[in-house]
Design a binder for these strands. Structure first.
Lengths: 257, 257
DNA sequence: ACGACCTTAACGGTGCGTTAAAGTTT
DNA sequence: CAAACTTTAACGCACCGTTAAGGTCG
């Protein structure tokens, strides 16, 4: 008679709960050596302790149960095991990198709480390309750009103007002048000599919000700059300011990195 | 009229899927500013873009949605935010440590694949205390210990002998003699002069399996030693060998660390 | 009237923990 | 007979993605 255990004893011997053992049976990961056809009782054998140990060992290295099950049915044990371990290695390395990054961000957030009561939230976002009409202009003051925006709106047939509008800010060599480019989204194609029609490229941005006054906007700009600095991001193209009624959304395009 | 968006537009503006927005509504994390009572349509306002951003920012730092929701309803914003960030920091640090450990283990497993076709799995396990009867003996050879085990079994009333039995190996100063202590689990209390009755202490062990021959056992011993070395574990007490019919389970008690 | 929008409802995925109700063994 | 064991079944967790079936808006 071959030695065999019922599920409870196998559970205490292996340190794995009966629920887990039943679950492993259910998903075909570790089937009992035999099942009493009348009572349904599961019976395990000593060798299955080792089999279970090999499952747990892989699980402890981060493998999913699906991975382990797949490995058992694999043709060439050595090869696929190596592949699995390599994948696990990559996954772990990536997660360590990500966690290290996140840790720095948390530390930065804690530091910021010391100086600011209400830190300004910054988030990343992927934007699709947008067809727009726009005019580029150098202005001396921020409010001056609003005139150009109005002119742009007036020059467009009203039925093709989308809801989205804003300003692109190009880098100016601190010459005292601002190089802005108001734009409005287009619902359909138009063409004209008074304005440009182009496609704002798809991009990933870091963004934050502000109210309409300069001071608030400047705080948001600063928050984004700091945020990017911590994460090592670089700016990639003109900043965007999106009008949202009483609010402003400020976007810094990021290098895809 | 206050500016407001339907869920689809709010979704594209924020970069968060409509499904997620509905989910956040459902769990009370971000309620739309208003809901049309007839159609059920949700309406969002620009300010909620910022609110959503603050949610995403926390989520990106590893906070759970429950954490974020709790923070919103917290009395003292600054304090609880600091607490949350500190907890996140601890969690992240721990996960980095754990992942670093795991990474080393994966590397070790990869290295082992180069030398051994079938690595011996090693797992940790928590054992409860076990009441046992045992005799301690110095023997010259491993097989000699089996005689003591038989004597022990003969000396005990058969109805109090449990299924579990094995040998404790004490450290011997390499004097050429082995210091072993066969034991059997007891189902009820007994006492005698020919054997000791005591409680094997609860402990955490690293364990592996082998067949009954010396060579196989030695490979398993070596596997456990290597496994412990990588993880920096130290042994804490006599090793245990558990009889499992045709198999042997070898256990090294670990310092709880 | 058609397409693009919106709604609720329900399943899926990961790895089990946790009752619950009911049969089996000692 | 009671205690200790076993069985299946089903919900819960975290965070949505993904159909599905059916109203609403322009």
């Amino acid at each position: 008679m071959a030695m065999q255990y019922r599920i409870g004893e196998f559970s205490t011997l292996s340190g794995v709960s009966t629920k887990t053992l039943r679950f492993y049976d259910e998903i075909g990961l570790l089937r009992p050596a035999s099942v009493d056809s009348r009572t349904g009782y599961r019976h395990y054998r000593p060798q299955q302790l080792e089999e279970l140990a090999s499952i747990l060992a892989l699980k402890n290295l981060g493998a999913s149960l699906a991975d382990v099950r797949q490995l058992k049915s694999a043709a060439s044990y050595g090869t696929s095991r190596r592949e699995l371990l390599s994948e696990l290695k990559n996954t772990i390395e990536q997660s360590i990198d990500a966690a290290t990054q996140t840790l720095q961000c948390v530390n930065a957030a804690l530091a910021e709480l010391e100086v600011s009561r209400r830190p300004i939230p910054v988030v990343v976002k992927h934007l699709d390309a947008i067809p727009v009409a726009c005019v580029r202009a150098e202005v001396k003051s921020y409010s001056h750009i609003l005139q150009f925006e109005q002119e742009l709106l007036n020059a467009l047939p009203p039925d093709c103007v989308g809801d989205l509008r804003g300003v692109l800010w190009h880098r100016c060599a601190d010459s005292g002048a601002l190089d802005g480019e108001p734009f409005v989204a287009l619902k359909r194609k138009v063409s004209s000599r008074t304005y440009d029609v182009k496609l704002l490229p798809a991009t990933t941005v870091a963004c934050a919000y502000s109210s309409l006054d300069d001071e608030s906007a400047e705080r948001s700009y600063e928050a984004i700059r700091k945020w990017m600095g911590i994460r090592g991001y670089k700016i990639a193209g003109p900043k965007r300011e999106i009008s949202l009624g009483q609010m402003l959304e400020i976007q810094f395009p990021l290098k895809s990195a």
